[in-house]
Design a protein around this nucleic acid. Structure first.
Length: 579
DNA sequence: ATCGTAGGCGCC
DNA sequence: AAAGGGCGCCTACGAT
């Protein structure tokens, strides 16, 4: 077997790995610990990450272990893209819910120690000085099992021996994790989900480093169309703001003292023209658009103000460098487990999407999952009738036929059932759903009930959904409101969380399979992937995206009763996508 | 001066 | 009576 270890170590060192927090762990024959990691089986190759998922069930294969994706970020910066890993923080979030997953917390939770007892830096120095003889300080763990806080801040990187100990601690933590996976009552899916979620952390590090290709000149045009040209001085900017404000205020006499950026000001402005609203949200103002010209002016102003403040020149200058929009990514939020992104990557206004453009010689291969949440509900609930509807490209059509209602009504009813909505005009169709698809509806009802009763849940992939307590001081009505909110959250999170797991499995499969074609994922958007691919590889990559969906679906839900579909297209600008 | 909250809105 | 879930990010405002 070729010894590539030295080469890998050199590359890790060149990447500043010691400073960045790499746990430096290789698992070889189940025992080896240290930094001499890597041969072909590790897939440590910047040019061609391979097999992120193909070997995902094989827990015995060598696998890099990292405390969190901070490590992956350092490696990516140094030109190293791991094929797969075990991300301790990601697995911790999966198994124990919430978002906090620093090493001290992970170790405490795995050791059944109360997190309230985690020692803080400072007080432990005192304990060490009085209690220990100091020789044991080289052990990252205290006798009581808690992590020594001195090790948290980077003390582990003082020497090669210490780095090895820290690596061994990570290894032990991983072993502990795996034991937990087996003994906890988490579903068997949790083991696969742990690997998928870990790979997603690697993807996050790469997304943050690569960024989303932006046509900066086009972005400037779009911004200018909303808020006017770029200003060179603060005075000019203020004048531009005043000009936009005046366009609204001119509709109402003696209103120059009103601050449009203060909702209360907008409310009083509307009051003066006889429009009385409880708040000034756009959907509430919409019906009054014809009542007085100032309403339309306010709505137009709001849209421009959104561009000016959030997606304007300042945003462009801060987050778009060298034609790439970059922001931090997390593999899961603290609730249902969807990915999150900063710098506006997940909430770019539709009007701005014309500025998202493939670079010369490249195209975007874009694919979004069709009706992902109801299809996921069919899979996780095991409702055979609902699953049968997924055979249709548009599953709302057979559902509507079965309920004897318009498609639009059926769609609203299904969404209402998943989101916990009880108002509106979906009521009749909702009752039809109960009759036609009792298994799926019972699944949602049970989740809702667990949420109301403050009972934690696990998603299909084993993510713990923790229910927050009702504060003691609330009165009866308030308590019911909190319980209702928990019920809605639980009902939705079981579906949304499972959909996120399927999506991430799809994404990391694409990451692995598309790399050899020179293609990279540049955006993940909950049910949509944007892949930057060489023109010559576009058709191949499009096929890869579809193949990967079937592969991911079969891994995520081996029951093939549910059909998953993707709408895939090859485009040069994001705005070319069909709405 | 710094912080958390509320209202608001962008996306899914 | 009744208020759909998640996230990020902006501003104004009131608390500390």
């Amino acid at each position: 077997m070729p010894d590539l270890g030295a080469d890998v170590v050199a590359r890790l060192r060149a990447a500043g790995v010691e400073r960045g927090g790499f746990v430096g762990l290789a698992l070889r024959d189940g025992l080896g610990v240290g930094f001499a990691a890597g041969d072909a089986a590790f897939g440590v190759d910047a040019a061609a990450p391979v097999d992120v998922v193909r070997t995902v069930e094989d827990a015995l294969q060598p696998r890099w272990v990292e405390w969190s994706n901070d490590v992956a970020s350092v490696l990516v910066e140094g030109g190293l893209r791991l094929a797969r890993c075990w991300d301790i923080a990601a697995v911790h979030r999966l198994l124990f819910g919430g978002w906090r997953a620093d090493p001290a917390r992970v170790i405490a939770v795995l050791s059944d120690l109360p997190t309230s007892g985690i020692p803080a830096m400072g007080q432990l120095n005192l304990l060490d000085a009085t209690g220990d003889d100091g020789s044991d300080f080289d052990n990252p763990l205290r006798p009581d099992g808690y992590l020594r806080p001195e090790w948290v801040g980077g003390g582990w990187a003082d020497s090669a021996e210490r780095m090895a100990r820290w690596a061994a601690t990570a290894l032990a933590t991983q072993a502990h994790q795996q034991r937990r996976l087996a003994v906890l009552d988490a579903p068997a899916r949790a083991s696969a989900a742990a690997r998928s979620e870990s790979a997603a952390e690697l993807l996050c590090a790469e997304l943050a480093a690569d960024g989303l290709p932006i046509d900066v000149a086009r972005a400037e045009e779009i911004i200018a169309s909303f808020v006017g040209p770029r200003t060179s001085s603060e005075a000019d900017a203020a004048a531009e703001r005043a000009r936009r404000d005046a366009e609204v205020l001119r509709h109402v006499p003696a209103s120059n003292d009103i601050d449009l950026r203060n909702p209360a000001g907008v409310k009083s402005l509307l009051n003066r023209v006889g429009v009385d609203v409880p708040n000034t949200r756009a959907w509430r103002l919409e019906p009054f658009r014809d009542a007085h010209p100032v309403v339309d002016a306010v709505l137009t102003w709001r849209k421009a103000e959104r561009i000016a403040t959030t997606y304007g020149y300042a945003w462009l200058d801060e987050h778009v460098v060298d034609g790439r929009l970059r922001g931090a990514w997390t593999g899961c939020d603290g609730a249902a487990g969807r990915m999150t992104a900063q710098a506006g990557l997940h909430n770019l206004p539709a009007d701005m999407r014309d500025a998202v453009a493939a670079e010369p010689g490249y195209v975007f291969v874009r694919a979004d999952l069709g009706q992902i949440e109801p299809r996921v509900l069919a899979a996780i609930s095991g409702d055979r009738q609902f699953a049968a509807a997924t055979a249709d490209d548009d599953m709302y059509a057979p559902v509507a036929a079965r309920l004897g209602v318009e498609r639009a009504i059926a769609k609203v009813a299904v969404l209402a059932a998943m989101y916990g909505q009880t108002s509106g005009n979906a009521g009749q169709a909702l009752r039809g759903l109960e009759t036609a698809y009792p298994v799926a509806m019972e699944y949602l009802r049970a989740a809702d009930e667990a949420g109301r009763d403050e009972r934690d849940l696990r998603t299909h992939g084993g993510r713990l959904l923790r229910m927050w307590p009702t504060p003691d001081h609330l009165d009866g009505r308030e308590r019911r409101a909190v319980a209702n909110a928990r019920g809605r959250f639980a009902r939705n999170a079981m579906v949304q969380g499972a959909a996120a797991e399927l999506f991430k499995t799809w994404a990391v499969t694409v990451r692995a399979r598309a790399a050899v074609h020179g293609a990279r994922i540049v955006l993940c958007l909950h049910d949509e992937l944007l892949v930057h691919a060489p023109v010559a590889a576009a058709d191949t990559v499009a096929a890869v995206l579809d193949d990967c969906l079937q592969e991911a679906a079969s891994r995520w839900a081996p029951d093939r009763a549910v059909r998953f579909v993707a709408d895939t297209s090859i485009i040069t600008r994001w705005s070319d996508a069909k709405p």
